[in-house]
Amino acid sequence: MPDKVKTVVDAVRGIPDGSHIALGGFAVARNVIAVAHELIRQQKKNLTLSQCVVGMDTDLLVGAGCVSRLIIGGGSLDRFGPVHCINRAREDGTVESHDYTSLSICFRYLAGALGISFIPIKSLIASEVLDRLEHGPAAADVRRMKCPFTDEDYILMKALNPDVSLVHVQVADREGNCQIEGPRWENEEQAKSARRIIVVTEELVPTEYIQRSPERTVIPAHRVEAVIHQPFGAYPTAVFGCYDFDDAHLKLYVEHVKRPDRVKQYLDTFVLGTKNHWDYLEKAGGLKRMEEIKAERVLGY
């Protein structure tokens, strides 16, 4: 198997403007912050982002003006507050938002992962979520039908096949075998629905380590295009078993982005004003802060 380890700079160079990128985070957990920052540094434009539950990575990319379309189920930064940049962009109409539900996005990825062109669902029925999809920019992606066998009402949705899926994992080898600890939300369906998979791993391990517990491999190497090794790559969001979210930094982020005029200040300080992820981590508190949020082995946070 080939060595697929790449730098985040090279991996992001291979993502063209206008791509549909699926993001692997959930609220304030396992966000692909390292890649989101690099997408912003390389000033990618016109991206479509999809995700079941959005979080800080999505909010950053929207706040930086990289995004023109969202295909999402919902989301927030949990108790830290709403996703201000995303919500504002929807209010202003600067981003075209296709608002679904967690399960309907997951089903669309599942259909994509299975190579079927559509999937039926019993959610969305009799809701304004469906009305807005049917009468908005997503009109071509949803249909109503009755089951040909039982006559029951269903909504049909087109499969999702993102150009690239980005996922942050705890452990991967150089070939791209990925192991995820803790809940996996839509990571598997999302990654396997995409044309290309790029993973960011906290830790690079020998393949022999993967072979000791292959049942934990969620995304196997033959599907993976590139592996980025970036410790604390999801900071300030949490990676179960590795580190907790940084509540102080998340509060600082929310304090900035809740005011439109201060979004730029955050981005200038922590993204555009940093050379790379190590530089960003240094600015965010460095080794001392990372040590403080490092997970305790029994609790995992």
Partner: peptide
């Protein structure tokens, strides 16, 4: 003014 959206809420209420 936009808020969190459905996430799993619509799925749960529907099913």
């Amino acid at each position: 003014r936009y808020f969190n959206g459905s996430a799993g809420g619509n799925d749960v209420a529907s099913l």
